[in-house]
């Protein structure tokens, strides 16, 4: 099921990896970056992006071929096209769908997700206060 949602992105990955295989691209490594800061940016991006065929692993953690091509995509956007991290995340979401990003956005359908914990906290403490009052010495 999950794979279906990623279909457009998968096609892109396959095409990309075919293209890359023709001139044997090495795995993304530290030496290819222009500065340690840029490498750190890359790591932080790769950590937040989900490998689209894996069982819940980030593209940084997974050693599946798809994760590899996605890492190369991030590298390409960051180093060759000099895009900002925000723009890269947006571009990745464009091609793979929202689920590629481990951080859900703050939109209509995720309002409950983001505000839920704080609502529960306030409710629990207010209700708890009224409940525990019964225990106080009169």
């Amino acid at each position: 099921m999950r794979v279906l949602g990623f279909l457009p992105g998968l096609v892109a990955v396959c095409l990309l990896s075919v293209g890359l295989n023709s001139h044997v691209q090495a795995q993304v490594t530290y030496q290819q970056f222009e500065s340690p800061e840029q490498y750190e940016q890359y790591r932080q991006l790769a950590e937040q992006l989900r490998c689209v065929v894996c069982a819940n692993q980030s593209i940084l953690a997974s050693n599946a071929p798809v994760a590899e091509s996605m890492r190369e995509e991030v590298f390409d956007l960051l180093v060759n096209r000099e895009m900002s991290p925000q723009a890269i995340l947006a571009s990745m979401k464009q091609s793979y769908g929202q689920a590629v990003h481990y951080r859900p956005p703050m939109t209509g359908e995720t309002r409950l997700l983001w505000w839920g914990p704080w609502a529960i906290l306030v409710l629990a403490f207010v209700a708890g206060f009224f409940w525990i009052r019964r225990l106080f010495k009169s």
Binding site: M1, R2, G5, E47, Q48, R50, S58, G97, Q98, A99, V100, H101, Y102, R103, P104, P105, E109, T110, L112, L113, G116, P117, I120, L121, A124
Partner: peptide, 30 residues
Amino acid sequence: VMMLTVLLGTLYPIVIRSMGISDLSVGAPY
């Protein structure tokens, strides 16, 4: 509250997807 938060984050993507609203991942950043 912490338990309910972890539960919310764990179940949210499953529920949202099964209702056909959208597909999203809730991971470490959240």
